[in-house]
């Protein structure tokens, strides 16, 4: 039987497999120059990995404190802008105002309250999102609490202005009393913040609030 032409009948025929020739692999020869090149590449690779890892996992503490500082600074600048408007409002004499002028005066109060509420909410988001070193966590928390209290105080002011608009002066007075309380809590939180900051930067012990 011709192995290349198996007969269609008379049993199973296995075709002949061609001969496979495995070529000889070239022999690897490493020169000194090539070895040094590979080692250099490995060293560079490790260096890049270390630098990338540093970027990947953390900013330095200085960078974090610097960002925290700039955010507190921006917040303080805006808060003092609000305070400038409050001071002007409080200095205005209401002794001889007409009813229309009283209404306009209270609209100004509401505008300041709205501005203060928005400013505190804005900076609260930024400061709360700051990644700070562990030593600064207490100061960050106290400052966020201060902004929260201030935000509440301005919200009560807005409610007082709203109560004035519907001529419910008793409700306006109640809201002002709540706002006064929130302002005092804000002042206490700022005192806490200063204490925590001193502890973080000077290593002083934080006395109980």
């Amino acid at each position: 039987m011709d192995p290349n032409n198996p007969s269609p009948s008379g049993g199973l025929k296995i075709p002949k497999l061609p001969d496979i020739k495995i070529p000889n692999l070239p022999k690897i020869t490493v020169t000194r120059k090539q070895a040094l090149t590979a080692a250099g590449v490995a060293v560079i690779l490790v260096a890049v990995a270390v630098i990338g890892g540093t970027i990947l996992f953390d900013y330095t503490e200085d960078q974090q404190v610097s960002a925290f500082r700039s955010h507190i600074s921006a917040s303080e600048a805006d808060l003092f802008r609000v305070y400038g408007k409050i001071s002007t409002y409080m200095r205005t004499s209401t002794t001889d105002l007409s009813v229309a002028e009283c209404d306009a005066h209270v609209r100004e109060f509401a505008a300041i309250a709205r501005y203060g509420r928005d400013v505190t909410a804005y900076h609260r988001q930024i400061v709360a999102a700051d990644a700070v070193p562990a030593a600064y966590a207490g100061a960050q928390s106290a400052y966020v609490r201060a902004l929260d209290n201030l935000n509440r105080a301005f919200t009560y002011w807005l409610s007082a202005a709203g109560a004035y608009d519907v001529r419910d002066y008793s409700a306006a007075d109640r809201n002002l009393a709540e706002a006064d309380k929130a302002w005092r809590e804000y002042a206490a939180a700022i005192a806490d913040y200063d204490r925590e900051l001193r502890a973080a930067e000077e290593g002083a012990e934080v006395p109980p609030a």
Binding site: T94, C102, V106, A172, L176, D180
Partner: peptide, 12 residues
């Protein structure tokens, strides 16, 4: 003449 006048309003 009534206008809301808060007692506390100072920024620390």
């Amino acid at each position: 003449r009534y206008v809301p006048e808060p007692k506390e309003y100072r920024i620390s």
